[in-house]
Computed example of a mutant assay.
Amino acid sequence: MNMVAVVTGGSRGAGKGIAIALGQSGATVYVTGRSQMPDDSPYGGTVAETAALVSEAGGKGIPICIDHSNDEAVAELFARVGRDHGRLDVLVNNAVKVGMTLPGGFWEKPLEAADLITIGLRSHFVASFYAAPLLIANGRGLIVNTGHYGAVAYYHSPVYGAQKAGADKMAADMAKELRPHNVAAVSIWMGGLDTERVRAYIASLPPEARPTAKRESPQFTGRVIAALYASGDLMHYSGRALIGAELGAQFGVTDIDGSTPLSLRYRLGGPPELHASLR
């Protein structure tokens, strides 16, 4: 697939997996993140490492070290994509400022928890703002906000829920304005992911308290995004919040081990069911 994509927040976690999966489809992927050295984060990972894995997977990975609170740097990122390719096919808004999960009420936690609204909601808007002209120039495009059931169920904190719900609404409203240009915008809800951060947290628990349920690989969402873009049916999905496991089942997408991730709709809630809305 001759796709040009930008994946924000790709040093590790979901963004890393999504970028690698898009690379497996043959895409050129601009991977953004702040981590230049492995010890920049306790969980390791750098943009250069992810970009190399994208290339190893069959695509072309291009590392871009960037702080998504810097609007000028974001503008230059998309200006570079424009100079290099003159277009953009897919933007994946995944960069978020994730803090520690601490016990207690929101008023008992550091106020910097609200930074998730800046790097996680505002940054989604800024990236989309600069990406939109390139997507429109392409005549067909897709914006994906990585979402979660926290948009409708309590998860971590009020600010986490606000960020996820806001990203869903932002995608819905962007979709309305982009529809005449054949550019789609969606949120894709991920399940429990097998990431570096999650593995470290589970390892910190007493053995008897460690969850044993199977988790989605970070690559699964990237596989779903690639299938969605290749489907030729983008406008049927545009404006929606979509559960990745349900969308994957519709497209016949499996996880990297061949398993089929399960929707958590009936445990955590969800948007309108996909099959009902597409009748």
Score class of each variant (00 low, 15 high):
Met1Trp: 04
Gly10His: 06
Ser11Ile: 06
Ile18Asn: 08
Ala19Asp: 05
Ala19Trp: 09
Ser25Glu: 03
Gly26Lys: 04
Ala27Ile: 00
Tyr30Ser: 00
Val31Met: 11
Thr32Gln: 10
Arg34Asn: 04
Met37Leu: 15
Ser41Trp: 01
Pro42Asn: 13
Pro42Cys: 10
Glu49Lys: 14
Thr50Asp: 06
Ala51Arg: 04
Ala52Met: 08
Ala52His: 05
Ala57Pro: 00
Gly59Val: 08
Lys60Phe: 08
Gly61Leu: 03
Pro63Asp: 02
Asp67Arg: 08
His68Glu: 13
Ser69Gln: 00
Glu72Arg: 10
Glu72Met: 02
Ala75Leu: 12
Ala75Cys: 10
Ala79Asp: 12
Arg80His: 09
Arg83Phe: 07
Arg83Trp: 05
Asp84Phe: 07
Leu88Trp: 00
Asp89Trp: 06
Leu91Tyr: 00
Thr101Glu: 12
Gly104Trp: 08
Trp107Arg: 10
Lys109Trp: 03
Leu111Ala: 15
Leu116Tyr: 01
Ile117Ser: 14
Ile117Leu: 15
Thr118Ala: 10
Thr118Arg: 15
Ile119Asn: 12
Gly120Arg: 02
Arg122Phe: 07
His124Ala: 14
His124Met: 13
Phe125Ile: 12
Val126Tyr: 01
Ser128Ala: 15
Phe129Ile: 02
Ala132Pro: 03
Pro133Gln: 06
Pro133Phe: 07
Leu135Val: 13
Ile136Tyr: 02
Ala137Pro: 06
Gly139Arg: 09
Gly139Cys: 09
Gly141Lys: 01
Leu142His: 00
Ile143Ala: 03
Ala153Asp: 13
Tyr154Lys: 13
Tyr155Thr: 07
His156Asn: 13
Ser157Gly: 14
Pro158Gln: 10
Val159Arg: 03
Tyr160His: 14
Gly161Phe: 04
Ala165Arg: 11
Ala167Gln: 12
Ala172Arg: 14
Met174Glu: 06
Ala175Phe: 01
Lys176Gln: 08
Lys176Met: 11
Glu177Arg: 13
Leu178Ala: 02
Leu178Asn: 02
Arg179Leu: 14
Pro180Thr: 07
His181Tyr: 15
His181Asp: 11
Ala184Ile: 08
Ala185Phe: 01
Ser187Asp: 01
Ile188Cys: 04
Met190Ile: 15
Leu193Asn: 03
Asp194Glu: 13
Glu196Asp: 11
Glu196His: 06
Val198Leu: 04
Arg199Tyr: 04
Tyr201Asp: 11
Pro206Asn: 14
Glu208Phe: 00
Ala209Cys: 11
Arg210Phe: 04
Arg210Ser: 07
Thr212Arg: 15
Thr212Pro: 05
Ala213Ile: 02
Lys214Asn: 04
Arg215Gln: 13
Gln219Arg: 14
Phe220Leu: 08
Thr221Phe: 06
Arg223Phe: 13
Arg223Lys: 15
Arg223His: 12
Ala226Asp: 07
Gly232Lys: 10
Gly232Met: 10
Leu234Trp: 00
His236Ile: 05
His236Asp: 14
Tyr237His: 08
Arg240Asp: 02
Ala241Glu: 06
Gly244Cys: 09
Ala245Asn: 11
Gly248Thr: 07
Val253Ser: 03
Val253Gln: 05
Ile256Ser: 10
Ile256Asn: 03
Ile256Gly: 00
Thr260Ile: 14
Leu262Val: 09
Ser263Cys: 05
Leu264Glu: 14
Pro271Val: 09
Pro271Ser: 13
Pro272Gln: 07
Pro272Leu: 08
Glu273Asp: 13
His275Arg: 15
Arg279Pro: 12
Arg279Cys: 06
